[in-house]
Design a protein around this nucleic acid. Sequence first.
DNA 1: CTCTGGATTGAC
DNA 2: TCAATCCAGAGG
Length: 206
Amino acid sequence: MYSFYKINFLSRQAFLPLMPNDIFQKDTKAVAKELLGMSLVHETKEGKTVGKIVETEAYLQRDPGSHSHKGMTPRNAQMFGKAGTAYVYFIYGMYHCFNIVTNKEGIGEAVLIRALQPVNGIELMKKRRKTDDIRNLCSGPGKLVIAMGITKHHNGADLLTGTIRLLPRKKNKKIDIVTCTRVGISIGKELPYRFYIKNNPFISKP
DNA sequence: CTCTGGATTGAC
DNA sequence: TCAATCCAGAGG
């Protein structure tokens, strides 16, 4: 009886309206911090995977490190789209990165999701990632995209209505946030736009 | 058309 | 430290 209730509650949770749909239409650095502790959910034919967001980076307008910095191009167009949609791009010839578009339409800002703490569907994540090391499943932007079954076809997907969703974190639970510089970029690397949950062992690098 | 380098990862 | 692997974007 208890387990039925629990399963029912968890499955219902994924379909609840998560938050007002203007939650992402504001200061991107603030959104990057608010996303920490929220869960990313993806339902596929293979099964459902859930991970808690533990590391993010903000990419802003007039930010030399951002794809959108020099204006709209075919590749970065989604960054200028509706807040709360996915911006997925291909990088280094073999990986994809998953971002959440933020701020008002036409601005060109987004939050890169850099690491998740695996919560549900861990066996499926292991299968997709071809490793059994739980700390290695989602500890990097390219890794979590594979573990969650995200592809380039999710570029533009609406996270409030699609198969990829977000769950709010427990409101009363306080999170210790570390702010530092971004990873893997050469221009704009001095800007403190990377955020992660302090002491969390699932981030991409300390 | 050619050339360059990247919001990465994993092997050496 | 470096190769894998490919395409967007810039320049001719």
